[in-house]
Amino acid sequence: MRNLCRQFAGWLESEPSGLTETWRAHLESCAACRALWQQEQAYRALLRQVRSEPVPACQLRWEAIALRLQTRPQRRILWAPRLAWGLGMMLAVGVAIGLWFQTTPRTQNPDSAVRLSQRESASPERTELRWRSAGSEAHPFAAEPVLTEPKPTHSDGEPEASPEAVPEARTRIARAPEPASMRGAVRPPTTQITMLAPEPIVPLGDTPQTEYLPVRYGEPAAAAVVAGGMPSKTQHAMEGVDENAIICSF
């Protein structure tokens, strides 16, 4: 019976035009459904009555609309092109930021460290380094000088955390990528070249006597040749420290 009552309620909501014999028989035996049916009939009667009431005629005249159309400022949709322009700008900025992040060097990368140090040195006291190799215009391995500060280490080999402990006068020159023409050629056994120079490095052109960084590949004599004279005291002093060091004298 309850199922039938539920079906009847659903049937009422489907806007039926009239009672069928099945439902008429059900209503005779079910007071709840009969009350529902009466409510539905009252609702429909009310709707018919309201619908039959006349709706007043619209008194609006075309002249009023035409006048308003002429006097009203044109309200074109201005936000659409602005929105498109704004979205385009946002996209361009997003792409630019993405590219910047992609191309910006990381500090762990020696190349980027050099760029950072170069950026930091972009000051009035900017130091320029000029390289000269013996008998040639440019050294094949020094095409792009790469300067990094060596990390000071503890006795157990762990890197020193304190920046004050970093020696001021030491810079390490990492090797530039090997050009294709030099592949397979015999080269000095050194794999890491270290430059030792006192601070400050005198900027080129500030003094009448131009000085160059001497470059040495392992042999003190070669370093002296590169330096354009005899090895200096500093060079001699550092001889025992690092065979692969480049001794700079000024």
Partner: peptide, 24 residues
């Protein structure tokens, strides 16, 4: 009119409807 139940209000809205429609 059926929605707002008032002829004056309904006319105001109808005017706005046509102005909006013709402008757009």
């Amino acid at each position: 009119y059926r929605s707002v139940g008032n002829a004056d209000d309904a006319e105001d809205i109808v005017q706005e409807v046509f102005l909006k429609a013709f402008e757009r």
